[in-house]
Design a protein around this nucleic acid. Structure first.
Length: 567
RNA sequence: GCCCCUAUAGCUCAGAGGAUAGAGCGCCGGUUUCCUAAACCGGGCGUCGCAGGUUCGAUUCCUGCUAGGGGCACCA
């Protein structure tokens, strides 16, 4: 019996009581009730506060209501006992067989276990990183790479239709600075004011020259245009490769420039400006075109076209938003760094200006910045040469799994300090290895089981597995592990709804710990010892181990971290 | 001045309004004729920043303060 099934059982009891006229609920029977794992041993396998919640509405006191519900709930086949405790909690003990059956449910679901339909029907666009294609991705992008990717995976697992999108800022003066910097490096000139520096520019200059011989000898403005195009191409490819090798995948690489091209209907910049004018939210002042975002809570109005005729970044942003909406997305998630939090107000106002309710369609997540310690010293990021910490370097130094996991286990709004020494430690001190080890351990056990000729019972999916007796998982440790595994779908659903993938990581650490304790319990040995024959209890525990392997493997997959079979 | 985030054990941090607030690290001590000891067991650590409020119940929600970080462009 999973917590969801228990919740349903309690709702059924409430419905019965209500139908029988024993209980009067003015607002009707709730669709679901809260079922949680009590922190305290002795408070049952599961507890519900339903009586505390409903007592006032039902004009009774919590304890009497709890007694009433408890009496009926006890009759349920899967419920072994119910106690009323404290101010009116119901502490429920699940029957051994019903609890053990969870293992079969997990194994039957396999890679789909943990997936739900809680966000089914939602089309969600997750935009993250969205760096300028003028340099390598660095530490500042790495956290969003991990979180955005994991949020995408978790949303998909909750049934949403997800598109992960990278917005390429390939338009604007920075692209010309970029080209000028490459040309300066190639021709041995001083780097220009506002230019880009760093060793990667020298490398890029060489690569551009190799790719297009004679490119630096072209006359202007052909030279700048050609260098800009080739440099952009190479730099974008470098970003894409580094993300691919970081196990971070995008469905769409969206060019800002494309918003300005001919033929863009919905979401094209000219079209967007027309639409805004029609909607009456723009005005001219001082030779510039403004959007009246203050009508919708922004601090000040924002410029769309500068007095020199140049379009602002905000004009592209607005067009891009409309473009996403025109592509059918109900929710647009933006992951931005804390240094961009000032954008939240204008993005929301902009959505309101075009007739949307930002509470419904916009989800701007502001992530706090990451500090990194090397040998106890903060690594200072600087745009000056040599002081850039790139995603690729970090992944090489720390390892993709350890880096991803270390960033994924904290909520986005928590400021974060990563100590390189700590997260590169290949030991149980390091949560990533602790979790991966639990997975590797299940694999080792199952290899041994296979050697002994143990096979997983057939028919686990439809409950016809006669060789699996769930009531043999009767040890206290069996119950703890089963309840941990039963939690997984709720954790994934919560992670998706709250856009908090760190919940998956924390859950995995907890589950790995419960599994290791189970493993060290003599009474719960999965393999027969010596020349003992394989008993039904060994088979039952084997199902439990496969279930654990499934959950840990599925959970790591949601974080984009590998689940090794050996370590 | 205005806005956002944060404040929980010595350190790094979890903690969808629930019962006696947790984990890891660090410190001390133990466990292996037994499926991977990258594991497990034991030992102590707290005015949940401060003050009000909502609630049967607040570390959690609201308000005000205090402290730290970040942000307030016709930049990209």
């Amino acid at each position: 019996m999973t917590p969801e099934q228990l919740s349903t059982a309690i709702v059924d009891v409430l419905t019965t009581l209500s139908d029988d006229g024993v209980l009067a609920l003015p607002d009707g029977v709730p669709a679901s009730v809260t079922v949680e794992r009590p922190r305290q041993k002795g408070h049952g396998d599961y507890a519900t506060n339903v009586a505390l919640q409903l007592a006032k509405k039902a004009h009774t006191n919590p304890r009497s209501l709890a007694e009433l519900i408890g009496a009926r709930l006890t009759e349920h086949d899967s419920v072994a006992g119910v106690e009323v405790a404290g101010p009116g909690f119901l502490n429920v003990t699940v029957s051994t067989g019903a609890q053990g059956a969870v293992a079969a449910q997990v194994v039957a679901a396999g890679p789909a276990y943990g997936h739900t339909e809680t966000l089914a029907g939602q089309r969600i666009n997750v935009e993250f990183i969205s760096a300028n294609p003028t340099g390598p991705l660095h530490l500042g992008h790495t956290r969003w790479a991990v979180l955005g990717d994991a949020i995408g995976r978790v949303l998909s697992a909750a049934g949403a239709d997800v598109t992960r999108e990278f917005y390429i800022n390939d338009r604007g003066v920075q692209m010309n600075h970029f080209a000028a910097s490459i040309i300066a490096a190639a021709t041995g000139q001083e780097k220009p004011e506002d230019g880009y520096a760093g060793g990667y520019i020298d490398d890029l200059a060489k690569a551009v020259g190799d790719a297009v011989p004679g490119i630096f000898e072209l006359p202007e403005p052909e030279r700048t245009a050609a260098v800009r195009a080739k440099g952009y191409e190479l730099q974008l490819a470098e970003q894409q490769e580094s993300l691919e090798s970081f196990n971070t995948h995008f469905d769409v690489w969206f060019s800002e420039l494309s918003l300005h091209e001919e033929g863009q209907e919905d979401g094209g910049v000219p079209h967007t400006l027309e639409r805004l004018k029609d909607l009456g939210h723009v005005y001219e002042e001082g030779g510039a075109l403004w959007m009246r975002t203050t009508d919708f809570g922004d601090d000040k109005d924002r410029v769309l076209i500068k007095s020199d005729g140049e379009l602002t970044y905000f004009a592209s942003d607005t067009a891009y938003y409309l473009n996403k909406r025109a592509r059918g997305f109900d929710h647009c998630i933006y992951l931005l760094g804390a240094d961009h939090h000032g954008y939240v107000g204008r993005l929301r106002a902009m959505a309101a200006c075009v007739g949307d309710d930002p509470d419904q369609t916009l989800d701007v997540m502001i992530g706090q910045l990451v500090k990194i310690l090397r040998e106890g010293q903060e690594v200072k990021l600087s745009k000056r040469a040599g002081n850039i910490v790139t995603l690729t370097e970090l992944a090489e130094e720390i390892g993709v799994d350890a880096l991803r996991y270390s960033l994924a286990r904290y909520p986005a709004d928590s400021p974060l300090t990563l100590d390189i020494a700590e997260i590169t430690k290949a030991s149980n001190d390091n949560p990533v290895y602790y979790v991966q080890y639990a997975h590797a351990r299940t694999c080792a056990m199952l290899r041994n089981a296979a050697d002994l000729g143990m096979v997983l019972p057939a028919g686990l999916a439809d409950g016809s597995a006669t060789e699996f007796d769930p009531s043999l998982l009767a040890h206290e440790r069996d119950g703890e592990l089963l309840r941990a595994l039963a939690e997984f779908p709720r954790v994934v659903a919560a992670a998706a709804e709250l856009r908090e993938p760190h919940r998956v990581a924390r859950y995995l650490e907890e589950t790995a710990s419960v599994f290791n304790k189970w493993y060290d319990t003599k009474e719960c040995r999965m393999l027969p010892q010596g020349d003992e024959p394989v008993m039904p209890a060994n088979i039952a525990r084997m199902v439990l181990v496969v279930a654990t392997q499934t959950v840990v493997g599925n959970g790591l997959a949601l974080l984009g971290v590998s689940a090794p079979e050996r370590m």
